[in-house]
Amino acid sequence: MIDVLYFAWVRERIGLPRERLDTAARTVRDLIAELTAREDRYALAFADLTSLRVALDQELSNFDAPLQGIREVAFFPPMTGG
């Protein structure tokens, strides 16, 4: 089981802030493919990966990173702090 978190417009498009998934995805990219195939709202949120960032266990990562041993995946747009 893995916790998947969504922030900002990713959260709005998908319609929930977090969910717990049972997935066999080996990488972040596999997980995105799995979600995209599920429903249109996911396909819409993940349509353009250049406008998305991913964090694994609260550390910035990349789409090819393996998910083995990861408990928390977060998807969000580029950050606008400061």
């Binding site: 900002a8 950050m79 606008t80 702090g81």
Partner: peptide, 9 residues
């Protein structure tokens, strides 16, 4: 902070 702290405005 601008680009690497997870805030969204």
């Amino acid at each position: 902070l601008k680009s690497r702290a997870p805030f969204w405005k």
